Simulated scan of single mutants.
Amino acid sequence: MMRKDKLDHLFRAAGEVTGHRRFVLVGSAVVLIRCRNIPGDMLLTPEADLYVPDVPNSDDLSDAIDANIGQGSSFHQQYGYYCDGVSPETALMPSDWSARSTLYASAGCPGITVIVPDPDDVALAKAVAWREKDKNWLTSGLRSRLLSIDAMAGRLPGMPAAAPPGREMKRRLVWLAAECELVFFPPP
């Protein structure tokens, strides 16, 4: 189960591995920074998805993260959790996601700043991926009101071209609303 202290540890380790002090956190772990009263099933992941923003060698740095503190690494074996080095294209979020992001700096990670997207933007990325684990995370977040189906629907026009077409994304939101017994009127 992921916890904030484990995230801080991963952020420090990523800083040591890459030599960088600024990261973007994407994926399910964003709720640890942005939300309270998080259902346990939303934290069952042993990983955090992280990348170094605004650098030309982002993929090389993500590879270094994977090799040193990623799945199967000695770090993972020692601590039981790990960091996935991802790219800016991994989480397909609305084009204006950064306008809703916050900066996280923990006393446990001096000098490290993490850009943390809004959970509803990450939720849309999970609706794009649409794996079983993503559906479970989304339904738990919607049932607990950590996520908003209406906010997600309102951000659909800003989704990148690589995301499924708008009609398919609306269909997925309708499915989520029905699964969570939410009243939802998708936009035309």
Rank of each mutant, 00 (worst) to 15 (best):
S101D: 09
A162R: 15
S101Q: 14
D63Y: 10
D54N: 13
G158C: 02
V86W: 01
D96E: 13
Y82L: 03
L176N: 02
A48Y: 01
A163N: 10
L138T: 00
Y82E: 03
V116E: 00
A162C: 06
L147G: 01
A107P: 08
L103A: 13
P56K: 09
L173D: 10
P94R: 08
P119T: 04
Y51L: 00
S58C: 13
C83M: 14
S73K: 07
T139E: 13
D63Q: 12
D54K: 13
I115P: 11
G158V: 03
G154R: 06
I38H: 06
E179W: 10
Y81T: 05
M152Q: 00
I38C: 05
A162V: 06
L146E: 03
N136Q: 14
P46K: 15
M93H: 02
P110G: 03
W130R: 00
A64Q: 09
R100G: 00
S144R: 05
T139W: 08
P164Y: 12
A163Y: 08
A64W: 05
L138E: 00
I112C: 04
V52N: 01
L156D: 08
G108Y: 14
P110Y: 07
A129G: 06
C180P: 03
V174T: 10
I69L: 01
L176E: 02
Y82I: 02
L147F: 01
H76Q: 14
K133G: 08
C109N: 06
L156W: 11
D54Q: 11
D150C: 12
L142F: 11
S98H: 12
I149R: 04
R155T: 07
S58M: 07
D63H: 11
S73H: 09
I33T: 08
A127V: 14
P56G: 09
S62K: 08
T45Y: 10
D134S: 03
R155N: 12
A105Y: 10
G111C: 01
A67E: 13
Y51W: 02
T45L: 07
T90S: 08
T90C: 09
S98K: 13
G141L: 04
D150N: 13
S144E: 04
W175K: 13
M42P: 04
R34S: 04
D96P: 07
D120R: 10
R34C: 03
G166V: 13
T113L: 11
Y51H: 01
G40S: 15
R36C: 09
E47K: 15
S58A: 15
Y79T: 10
S87C: 09
A125V: 03
A178F: 12
L92F: 06
S144K: 05
A125S: 05
L146N: 05
R143Q: 14
C35M: 06
S73C: 06
R167S: 15
L92D: 04
P46G: 08
G40T: 09
P56E: 09
G70E: 02
V174R: 11
D150K: 11
L147A: 00
R36T: 13
P164E: 14
A177T: 07
A91P: 08
E168M: 13
L61N: 06
E179K: 12
